[in-house]
C-alpha cells in the first residue's frame, strides 16, 4: 500500500516538475512584489491560498490599494474567463472523483488543466488519485513560492530572470502532444490562429474573451472536418 502510494506520488511529481520550477519562481516574484508594495507578509500568501490564479494576483496588486469590490469582481471574472473552457473537457474525467471534486475544480489553473487534459495516468494508477496529486502538488508549489517571497523579500538576490519561460515551454510541449491526437491538429491550428489574429486586432486586454468566442464558433462551424473520431 505504501509502496503503491510512493509510485503514484513519484509519477505525479515527475509530471509536475516544470510547474514546480515555474510556480515556485513566479510565486516568489509575486510575494516579493506585494511586499515591496507595502503589504504585510500574510496578504500575498492569503491571496495565493484563496485566489490561486497567477495572472489575476499580479493584476490585483495595484487594485489592492483602494477598496473597490465591484472593480475586483469584474477584474476577477474578466481575467479568468478562459477557465470557462477548462471545465468542459474535464466534466467526464472528473465524473468519478467524489469528495475531491470541489478541490479539483478550485485548483484548475492553466497549468493543471494543461497537464490533466493531456496526460493519462500510468497503467494501474487510479485516475482520481492522479488528478488529486497533480492538483495538490501544483497548489503547494504556488503557495510555498509566495510564502518564501513574502517572508524573505529582497533578501533573495538570485538572478533567475527568464525562468518563467519554463511555463511557456510547458505549453509548447503540451500543445505538440495535443496536435498528435486525432482531432487535435485542426483544433490546435484554430486555437493558435484565432488567438494570434485577435491579439493583433484587439490588443492584450480583450483578446482572450474574443479568441474564446472565435475558437468556439470556428470549432462548431468546422465540426464535420475537425471531428475525426
Amino acid at each position: 500500500m505504501k509502496k503503491r502510494f510512493g509510485k503514484d506520488f513519484y509519477y505525479a511529481l515527475r509530471m509536475t516538475l516544470p510547474v514546480m520550477a515555474g510556480y515556485v519562481f513566479l510565486g516568489m516574484t509575486f510575494g516579493l512584489l506585494a511586499k515591496s508594495e507595502g503589504f504585510a507578509w500574510w496578504v500575498p500568501v492569503l491571496m495565493s491560498l484563496v485566489i490561486y490564479s497567477g495572472a489575476l494576483e499580479f493584476a490585483a496588486v495595484p487594485l489592492m490599494g483602494s477598496f473597490d469590490p465591484i472593480g475586483a469582481l469584474l477584474l476577477g471574472i474578466m481575467l479568468s474567463a478562459r477557465h470557462l473552457f477548462y471545465g468542459i473537457p474535464m466534466l467526464k474525467k472528473y465524473e468519478g472523483t467524489k469528495m475531491a471534486k470541489p478541490f479539483l475544480i478550485f485548483g484548475l489553473t492553466d497549468e493543471t488543466f494543461s497537464i490533466l487534459s493531456t496526460a493519462e495516468p500510468e497503467d494501474g494508477v487510479n485516475p482520481s488519485k492522479f488528478y488529486v496529486l497533480v492538483t495538490l502538488l501544483d497548489y503547494i508549489y504556488w503557495v510555498s513560492g509566495t510564502l518564501v517571497g513574502a517572508i524573505l523579500g529582497t533578501a533573495i538576490n538570485l538572478n533567475l530572470e527568464g525562468l518563467d519561460f519554463v511555463l511557456t515551454a510547458l505549453f509548447v510541449v503540451l500543445f505538440i502532444e495535443q496536435m498528435k491526437t486525432k482531432s487535435g491538429i485542426l483544433s490546435g491550428i484554430v486555437g493558435v490562429a484565432a488567438s494570434a489574429v485577435s491579439l493583433i486586432a484587439f490588443g492584450k486586454t480583450y483578446f482572450i474573451v474574443i479568441s474564446m468566442a472565435m475558437i468556439a464558433s470556428v470549432l462548431f462551424a468546422g465540426k464535420k472536418v475537425i471531428d475525426r473520431e
Partner: peptide, 11 residues
C-alpha cells in the same frame, strides 16, 4: 470537450 484542449493549448 474533445477538441477544446488542443485549441486552448494554442491560446
Amino acid at each position: 470537450g474533445k477538441v477544446l484542449p488542443a485549441a486552448m493549448m494554442g491560446l
